[in-house]
Amino acid sequence: MRRVLLAVVALSATLAAGCDDAGASPAAQASTAPAAAAGGACQLLDFGMVNAKLGLNLSIAAGASMDNTFSCVLQAAGGSYPDLVLSVSTTSIGADVFGSDVQPKDAQTVDGLGLVGYQMQTPAAEKAGPGVEVGWLAGNKRIIKLSLRLAPGNADDKAAEAMPKMIELAKLIDLSSL
């Protein structure tokens, strides 16, 4: 189980690091292709749906897969943030193990999301603003994590405002992952 979690974290970090502005060539152009064309967990996302729910203008997608984990990063053209990261891993655990071993200790429960779900705010990091995270155990035996990181300089209340929107988006993704 911990290997699955480490794979999710490593793959998400690799994707996010690959989208950093440091040492970048000319700014990436927005794709006219659907997010699903990027592969990985991007197959569960649609730019229109995500942007409508979150009030963002994300237009670049990068997908990846490793073993039983699929990830996707969505970003706006020309910047690293905001970004949305989705990771999906197959599992054999039940709701009790998810709640005790996967869900962060300081997270709050989200009713009506998968078999069991959680939400939590994440603090600003060195080069990124605050964020929110929603995770759940889907009915089809998948651990799904959806994270939004805002641009540096955003206040924590902006992340708090995004939480209900992220939960709505997570519920749509949960339905599409069945």
Score class of each variant (00 low, 15 high):
residue 10 A to H: 12
residue 10 A to C: 07
residue 11 L to S: 03
residue 20 D to T: 10
residue 20 D to N: 05
residue 23 G to W: 04
residue 23 G to L: 06
residue 24 A to W: 09
residue 24 A to C: 06
residue 24 A to H: 14
residue 25 S to P: 08
residue 25 S to F: 06
residue 29 Q to D: 14
residue 31 S to P: 10
residue 41 A to I: 00
residue 42 C to L: 06
residue 43 Q to C: 04
residue 44 L to G: 00
residue 45 L to I: 02
residue 45 L to D: 01
residue 46 D to K: 01
residue 50 V to H: 01
residue 51 N to F: 01
residue 51 N to V: 02
residue 53 K to C: 08
residue 55 G to D: 09
residue 56 L to V: 13
residue 59 S to D: 11
residue 60 I to W: 09
residue 61 A to C: 03
residue 62 A to V: 14
residue 64 A to E: 06
residue 65 S to G: 12
residue 68 N to S: 13
residue 68 N to Y: 11
residue 75 Q to I: 02
residue 79 G to T: 15
residue 79 G to C: 08
residue 80 S to C: 06
residue 82 P to N: 08
residue 83 D to R: 15
residue 84 L to D: 07
residue 84 L to S: 14
residue 85 V to M: 09
residue 88 V to N: 01
residue 88 V to F: 00
residue 89 S to C: 04
residue 90 T to I: 06
residue 94 G to Q: 05
residue 94 G to L: 03
residue 96 D to K: 10
residue 98 F to E: 05
residue 100 S to C: 05
residue 104 P to N: 12
residue 106 D to G: 06
residue 110 V to Y: 04
residue 111 D to E: 13
residue 114 G to Q: 02
residue 114 G to F: 01
residue 115 L to S: 11
residue 119 Q to W: 13
residue 120 M to A: 13
residue 121 Q to W: 07
residue 127 K to Q: 11
residue 128 A to E: 02
residue 128 A to P: 01
residue 128 A to V: 05
residue 130 P to F: 00
residue 131 G to H: 11
residue 131 G to A: 05
residue 131 G to I: 03
residue 135 G to H: 08
residue 137 L to V: 01
residue 140 N to T: 15
residue 144 I to W: 07
residue 149 R to I: 03
residue 153 G to C: 00
residue 154 N to K: 13
residue 155 A to E: 15
residue 155 A to H: 11
residue 159 A to L: 07
residue 160 A to Y: 09
residue 162 A to K: 12
residue 163 M to G: 08
residue 164 P to D: 09
residue 165 K to G: 08
residue 167 I to M: 11
residue 172 L to G: 11
residue 172 L to W: 09
residue 175 L to G: 14
residue 175 L to T: 14
